[in-house]
Design a binder for these strands. Structure first.
Lengths: 129, 129
DNA sequence: TAATCTTATATGTTTAAATCATATAATAAA
DNA sequence: TTTATTATATGATTTAAACATATAAGATTA
């Protein structure tokens, strides 16, 4: 169980400083939209992509992935159909034009965020004795 | 009431896409530690610094600032004393060595995070038609 | 001088989402 | 035939962000 051991390691790290440093904080949503921009996909595959790409340093909560997909669909940012033809049934998601617009907004935000992080690091390096 | 109007604007923006894009997500804590690394300070001043530096694009919740300071103190990352000599009583906070270590951990995390955001943006620009 | 604004600290309540846990079921592998 | 993997889903708990309000003293202004 690779997932469990990683979580335990993080938990230890967290206890050492009593403050959680490992929150994902709303990064699942834009990540899913980004993968879906590339090609239609389904929950399980998307979760594996999340693991591989390293947008999240920590283990992915599969429940969060499915819930986020459903809520994105409810708001019209993605659309799903059942695929039952092949060996396994899969709920295939496609990004909509509204979803693409949302992703653009996210990218803008993420660029701003990146700049803020850069400012933070610079500030730190300047003031550090 | 400048604060209020800003919040309302953000609320509208949020409603437009039904997903909140404006969360601060644990950035108050490292920001406070960073300011305190520079010099001892107090809640109100720290909040004003947060506004000015633009680490947070959005309005600062002053309640969160005070609560974060208290919790940092509870864990030994900062230490406070009351200053009553001047016109107003202020609770002056100083960063401790444990706090400095925590900030170092935060900076590492923030650097990682920055890289993740960069990867995200690159990925977006590549796959975008 | 009374009313309002700014500085200053603090906490109560609500809402959102992250985290943890578990359920189901079919196929693949041991 | 038992276990692992693929696949989707939701219940429960915990955390923190967001919103709201309280207090009080000094500064400003009407």
């Amino acid at each position: 169980m690779k997932k469990q051991s990683l979580k335990e390691k993080l938990k230890k790290k967290e206890k050492a400083c009593a403050f959680s440093l490992h929150r994902v904080s709303r990064f699942i949503q834009p990540s899913l939209l980004l993968f879906l921009l590339k090609k239609p996909s389904y929950g399980y595959e998307l979760m594996e992509n999340l693991r591989k790409t390293g947008f999240h340093e920590e283990s992915i909560d599969i429940g969060a992935v499915y819930r986020t997909l459903r809520s994105l669909e409810k708001e019209g940012f993605v659309k799903s159909i059942w695929q039952r033809k092949k060996k396994r049934r899969k709920r295939i998601y496609k990004i909509t034009s509204r979803g693409k617009a949302l992703l653009r907004a996210w990218v803008k935000r993420i660029e701003e965020r990146k700049k803020a992080l850069e400012r933070f690091i610079k500030f730190y390096q300047k003031r550090r004795q």
